[in-house]
């Protein structure tokens, strides 16, 4: 009886709290369909939904539709996710399984880079990419992902690889497999769930990595969704309904991925990230 009551209290407080957390998002959906006059009213749903907010917002720029910006962003994401997942797996296997000189040293350096503020490297990196003529292209955005996909992901995968029983490696060694063979046939297949987590995080974080995008992309033709939204915000007379509609669309890919792979997400870091 007592547990039932405490469960009911939990349900009640958790639903209330979830509602508060989600409330701005719920309001957002309604607001994206509102007329300008209705926007500041505390109602959730507009009297007559303005679906034109979506179609007009989609065409807000004279030269491009949002389809163009979505295409650009997805193209960039393709490179980021592929590069990140592939190289993170390779590097993590090196750190997680192989013994080589200075391994501990390099691994500490890797962990240290996680704490390095990006501001320290951003100026010389910009200078470098500028000299190579890569400014206003996707290279500065995509290329860094091909160097191990980021310290955090390598760390995540190393933790995961260490939880794979070594007996499997040793059995494969007896069967004559080299370290490369073990990576390809033993570790990589078992690593798949963790790699999905890495892929999802890479996707969502690069989607939101506004700093790099605003820094390196300058021509509208190459704009990502985030930059297009910024262009929208900076207009003199903001059409808030349309802007909120397009903003809502812009988070849709991340949300879709989140729900498709939800189990990986909330449980994902819980099981792979912190296996001490």
């Amino acid at each position: 009886m007592n547990t039932l009551r405490s469960n009911l209290t939990s349900h009640f407080s958790l639903s209330a709290f979830s509602f508060i957390m989600l409330y701005p998002v719920i309001w957002w959906v309604g607001a994206s369909l509102k007329k300008a006059e209705e926007l500041s009213l505390p109602t959730i749903w507009p009297k007559t939904p303005m679906w034109e907010n979506y179609s007009n917002g989609w065409h807000f720029s004279a030269d491009y539709t949002f389809a163009h910006f979505f295409g650009n962003t997805l193209l960039m994401e393709l490179g980021n996710v592929l590069g990140g997942v592939a190289t993170a797996a390779i590097v993590a296997y090196g750190f997680g399984r192989l013994n080589f000189k200075l391994r501990g040293f390099w691994f500490s350096i890797l962990l240290l880079t996680m704490m390095l503020p990006g501001q320290v490297t951003v100026v010389p990196q910009y200078i470098l990419f500028n000299k190579l003529g890569f400014v206003d292209s996707y290279v500065p955005l995509v290329l860094p992902h091909f160097f191990g996909g980021g310290a955090f992901f390598i760390f995540l995968l190393v933790q995961f690889i260490r939880s794979i029983p070594r007996d499997l490696d040793e059995a494969a060694t007896i069967d004559g497999a080299s370290v490369y063979g073990i990576f390809w046939r033993v570790v990589l297949p078992l690593l798949k769930p963790a790699l999905v987590t890495v892929g999802i995080f890479t996707f969502i974080w690069s989607w939101d990595d506004f700093f790099a995008q605003v820094l390196y992309l300058s021509s509208v033709d190459k704009f990502t969704v985030g930059l297009a939204l910024r262009m929208f915000i900076d207009q003199f007379d903001i059409q808030w309904g349309q802007l909120l509609a397009m903003s809502l669309l812009s988070i849709l890919p991340s949300v879709l991925i989140f729900f498709l792979a939800q189990k990986h997400f909330v449980e994902g870091i819980a099981t792979t990230g912190l296996k001490g």
Partner: peptide, 22 residues
């Protein structure tokens, strides 16, 4: 050798995009 081959993507990135810029 294998160890360094496997970590080479990160090592290269570290030298090029982190250490040198620092």
């Amino acid at each position: 050798l294998a160890g360094y081959i496997f970590i080479s993507p990160w090592l290269l990135g570290f030298l090029l995009l982190t250490l040198w810029p620092i």
